[in-house]
């Protein structure tokens, strides 16, 4: 029996090492910094498994290939894992990159590491949301407030400027959650006095929770005429919740894309949505990072853009290029 136990522990180590070795060769590995001529850009994002981040990664990889650079792309499992992200940034710095791409979950929590990058002359490019620090050379991001205001404008137009509108927002702590809520609310308050906004509700960007929230909103306020979902998970949750509750004739406005949301717009259950340009964000990020390694000047902000899309333009090449499935 003792042998069996020893075997199990030995197997633990063996499996870990084998998997590590396999991963090492299949990945874009090469842990060495320097040595080769290709600049190496370590990108630490806010996530990795959501379609949005995969689209950013795709754009970053395209641009890296086009310009002959090497990238790594990683992010924590959830947007609440701030410590995990700080550890990733620490480890990214240990790999001696030529530049860092960073989308901060909480920029102040990462401040000491950014300071370290700066003192080692590793340029930092912020993306997705601004890093609240003078260290990043530029920020490649969507203007979330302006984008949310655009969503509000389309909602108000569709409702003829009157009626009750509910908000299902992904969270109240992240910059994007706050901006997409405030951008929507402020535009309505300033421009649509006939629209009555309900208190925003938060579903963590989780489809099932957002659907439940939508159903309780509809149960409590039968006179709601419009609902806004602030990211992919929230928007799809709203569509699900509306369908499950059987209420018809609602105006639903969403954010981001993804197969389910695109389908909802095609079949008319959703009026339209704002899409960011994640592939473009990845490209701009890598382009800016490569320029930074050459010491070229960069603008303080790179607006990666957003688009309103609905049934009328969903098949246009311009929109198709930025939607992800």
């Amino acid at each position: 029996m003792r042998m069996k136990r020893i075997g199990a522990v030995a197997a633990t180590a063996a499996v870990a090492l084998t998997l590590a070795a396999c991963g090492g060769t299949s990945g874009d590995a090469g842990a060495q910094g320097g040595g080769d001529q290709q600049p190496y850009i370590a990108i630490v994002s806010k996530g990795f498994q959501h379609q949005f981040w995969q689209a950013v990664q795709q754009g970053a990889e395209q641009e890296a290939q086009a310009q002959g650079a090497r990238i790594t792309f990683e992010g924590p499992a959830t947007e609440a894992d701030i410590e995990a992200q700080v550890t990733m940034l620490t480890n990214a710095l240990a790999r001696q990159p030529d530049a860092i791409g960073f989308a901060a979950l909480d920029s102040r929590a990462a401040a000491p590491l950014l300071q370290q990058a700066s003192s080692r002359d590793i340029p930092v490019i912020a993306f997705d949301s601004g890093v609240d620090s003078p260290i990043p050379l530029t920020t490649a991001a969507t203007d979330n407030k302006a984008a949310a205001a655009e969503a509000a404008r389309h909602m108000a137009e569709a409702l003829g400027g009157t009626g009750k509108v509910a908000l299902v927002v992904h969270d109240q702590t992240s910059r994007s959650g706050i901006d997409r809520r405030d951008g929507f609310v402020e535009w309505m308050q300033a421009n649509a006095p006939g629209i009555e906004l309900l208190q925003p509700q938060y579903g963590g960007g989780d489809q099932a929770r957002s659907a439940d929230i939508t159903k309780s909103i509809l149960a409590a306020n039968p006179d709601v005429r419009g609902i806004y979902g602030s990211n992919e998970g929230s928007a799809i949750g709203v569509v699900r919740g509306v369908a499950e509750s059987g209420v018809t004739g609602l105006t639903v406005v969403g954010f981001d894309s993804g197969a389910a949301q695109v389908e909802a717009i095609r079949n008319g259950t959703m009026l339209g949505a704002i899409t960011q340009n994640p592939v473009g964000m990845g490209r701009e990020l890598v382009d800016a990072a490569i320029k930074a390694t050459r010491g070229e000047a960069l603008p303080p902000v790179i607006d990666t853009g957003f688009y309103w899309y609905d049934q009328s333009n969903i098949d246009s090449p311009e929109i198709q290029a930025v939607l992800y499935q």
Partner: peptide, 18 residues
């Protein structure tokens, strides 16, 4: 695993196996 730039999906698989 992060230092070696192992794809992140595999990092969790390895941890789970351990």
């Amino acid at each position: 695993l992060q230092i070696m730039s192992i794809p992140q999906e595999w990092q969790n698989v390895i941890l789970g196996a351990v």
